[in-house]
């Protein structure tokens, strides 16, 4: 089983739809410990990315992902723009020229994306950021042993758990870090949107 270019495009559409559906929820999470803009910003960025998709629908997966990344960088702003933009651009670089992805390709792509996010945002695991959902998801992909479908299930589960695990954490990066101890008890909005990214990958790529 592999992931086709069309499946990648369907995943981008599904992620945009999930962000739209969770726009208020993400903003609500961000109100508690940030500045109440994550949902609106990601929604604006993903809607802009959707408009770019038809222009690259016949290109390789790398071009599709890079286009999404560059669009996010120029439309999202905040911390989410450079971080999600870098994630997609690095995934695009890792998948340049490819028309389908194996489990190894998808793992390498996510690895490149997460490396980019860590380099740009300088966050470590446990800082209460999107890294807390992405890194466990990546680790689950790396240790998966029974094929792509099962690996996607495991990575979604790890991202979900990582997202929940941010609740008791005290933020050490981003605007939530200004709250110190008061940031504990709230789920991180970035980890939440990152879980949506992995969840929509699972839902899109394992449906019949």
């Amino acid at each position: 089983m592999t992931i086709s270019r069309d499946a990648v495009i369907d995943w981008i559409r599904a992620f945009a739809a999930a962000v739209a559906e969770n726009k208020e929820y993400l903003t609500q999470l961000d109100s508690a410990i940030g500045d109440a803009d994550h949902g609106a910003n990601m929604h604006r960025g993903m809607q802009a990315a959707l408009e770019k998709l038809p222009g690259v629908a016949d290109k390789d997966i790398g071009t599709v992902l890079k286009t999404v990344g560059m669009t996010l960088v120029s439309t999202v702003g905040g911390a989410g723009g450079p971080l999600y933009g870098t994630l997609f651009m690095q995934m695009g670089t890792a998948t340049a020229g490819k028309l389908e992805l194996t489990l190894a390709d998808w793992t390498a792509a996510l690895q490149a994306g997460v490396n980019g996010v860590v380099m740009r945002g300088k966050a470590n695991l446990g800082d209460k950021t999107m890294v807390d959902a992405l890194t466990p998801a990546l680790n689950a992909l790396k240790t998966a042993t029974s094929g792509l479908g099962e690996a996607l299930v495991q990575s979604e589960r790890a991202a979900d758990q990582g997202k929940r695990d941010t609740i008791p954490l005290v933020a050490r990066k981003g605007r939530a870090s200004y709250l110190g101890e008061r940031s504990a008890g709230h789920q991180d909005p970035g980890a939440t949107s990152s879980h949506l990214l992995l969840k929509t990958a699972l839902d899109t790529w394992t449906k019949a």
């Binding site: 500045d35 910003n41 960088v73 702003g77 905040g78 723009g81 450079p82």
Partner: peptide, 11 residues
Amino acid sequence: PGAVFTSPTPD
């Protein structure tokens, strides 16, 4: 100027 309370973008 970025969006309200949102940093502007690199472009």
